[in-house]
Amino acid sequence: MKVIAAHGIDGATTRRIAEQAQAPLATLHYCYHTKEDLFADVYDFVARRFRDVVKGSAPHADPAATARRLLRGLMECYLESADFAATALELISWARRQHEDRGIRVYDEAVEATRTVFRDMVSTHPLEAETIDEIAYVIATLADGFALNWLTYEDRSAAVKQMEITASVLDSWLAVRLESAPAALG
């Protein structure tokens, strides 16, 4: 992750990766036949991290509290590690360019994990499928925007304040959307 974050995919040579890992280059080549195989493992790590954040952030008392916790969990994950944020965005972009479906898949998996949290709440908090899709989209959009801003400026104190602003945007949208959302059909 550190090499990809610092040098991008194209600059993440096996030599740099081996140096960062403090491992012989031959060992890296023994474990991974191609650089793409190595990136696939990093890619899977990133996807698992997103799923873990979603699972660890939900469920809460109601859809609004759950949405806030999910967004905050994603933003904290990015804030915790600029390398993770940079690597996640770089890998998704790279995979999208190289292997169209794989780039879409990691993003879809993260959004689907979010949808599942809200689908699981339907028995106690009726939500239509469209509303669930919208909530997942808004959370992803706000979290990604936060990550890009954090990576651009890397100002931790500003980022902490921006987390509150981002959360307030979600709160405002949820207040309007959930108030106007019809209950799911039983």
Rank of each mutant, 00 (worst) to 15 (best):
T166D: 05
R119D: 04
R156Q: 13
S172C: 05
R69A: 13
R102L: 11
L79T: 12
A184M: 13
L151K: 07
W173H: 07
E130Y: 14
A85T: 04
E112H: 07
F118R: 06
L185A: 09
H60D: 07
I165Q: 02
S172Y: 10
A181T: 12
Y107W: 14
P126Y: 07
D52H: 06
E179V: 01
Y78I: 03
T116L: 13
R69M: 10
P63F: 04
P59L: 09
V54P: 00
S81Q: 04
A113C: 13
E112Q: 12
D144E: 14
L91A: 13
W150V: 00
T66M: 14
L170S: 00
E112L: 15
A82P: 03
L74C: 12
R102Y: 15
D83F: 12
R68Q: 11
Y153M: 05
I104G: 08
I135C: 04
L127F: 10
S93K: 12
E109Y: 01
S180H: 13
R102V: 08
G73P: 02
F84G: 07
T141C: 10
D101G: 15
E90K: 00
T87C: 11
A58C: 08
R119Y: 07
P126M: 06
Y78N: 10
T166W: 01
H125V: 14
V53M: 03
R49H: 11
V169Q: 04
W94P: 07
G103A: 13
S57I: 04
G103I: 15
D101W: 14
T116W: 03
L178Y: 05
L142Q: 02
R102P: 09
I139E: 01
R72Y: 06
L71I: 11
R69P: 00
